[in-house]
Design a protein around this nucleic acid. Structure first.
Length: 221
DNA sequence: AACTGAGGCAACCGCGTTTCA
DNA sequence: GTGAAACGCGGTTGCCTCAGT
């Protein structure tokens, strides 16, 4: 009943996983116009997404300086140290890990580190808890000696995260190369550009974001 | 070979903060 | 000074993949 008035508008808003087409539209638009003012950006780019969604997608996934792949042992230690300092201030922590997003760090913490803490918690139940290991409660941040813990426990079964089904990885070289972007419009993109990955990473005809971006650079210049 | 469960990542939601008219 | 809109952050959920049985 009441939905009739705005149903046409709500039907316009897309949710769920981003398609390759949407990614390209967003990348192209930001390359030409820059980021910011996300709501109007979404409209102007012709994306049927909320500004929030566009911002999230850009920051966590499409930004050229986003580092994807293994969290290094050094980064692990840094994450644990910073978390012991600041708790779940993921964005703050992310600022000290260039190329890492708050979402990635948050996920990493929840899936890996918290698991370790839980296991440690079982081995050392309340009362006989190891010094320096708090529970997974956000406010139990008394992990002062976290670096000790991290160096051992974290490296113990450190395993590279499996990055799979990246939407743009499905792009064959030709498609990626045909993306037209005026990278010059966003100088910051190029400034923070990570070193190009070895060509082997494109095995099987799959391309990483870094490779796509470097292709854009090559094409655009 | 098929099924089940666990792990991991991307995306959405709600709330607090900041900015602007 | 006030209200509205936009932004940013943290928590949570859903889906996909992989490993084990």
């Amino acid at each position: 009943m009441e939905k009739k008035g705005c149903s046409s508008l709500e039907a316009e808003v897309r949710k769920g996983p981003w398609t390759m087409e949407e990614d390209l539209i967003l990348i192209n638009y930001i390359a030409n116009h820059g980021e910011g003012v996300w709501n109007s950006l979404a409209k102007a780019a012709g994306l049927k997404r909320t500004g929030k969604s566009c911002r999230l997608r850009w920051l966590n996934y499409l930004r050229p300086d986003v580092r994807r792949g293994n969290i290094t042992p050094e980064e692990q230690i840094l994450i644990m140290e910073l978390h012991s300092k600041w708790g779940n201030r993921w964005s703050k922590i992310a600022k000290h890990l260039p190329g890492r997003t708050d979402n990635e760090i948050k996920n990493y913490w929840r899936t890996r580190i918290q698991k370790h803490l839980k296991q440690a918690d079982q081995r050392f139940p309340a009362g006989q808890q190891q010094p320096g290991i708090g529970s997974d409660h956000p406010h139990c941040m008394n992990m002062g000696s976290s670096s000790q813990v991290s160096a051992d426990t974290m490296e113990m079964d450190y395993s590279p995260p499996a990055y799979h089904h990246h939407p743009l990885e499905a792009f064959p070289a030709g498609v990626g190369a045909t993306m037209t972007m005026a990278v010059g419009g966003s100088s910051s993109s190029t400034a923070n550009m990570p070193p190009p990955p070895p060509p082997e990473s494109a095995e099987g005809g799959y391309w990483s974001m870094e490779e796509l971006w470097s292709m854009q650079l090559l094409n655009g210049e």
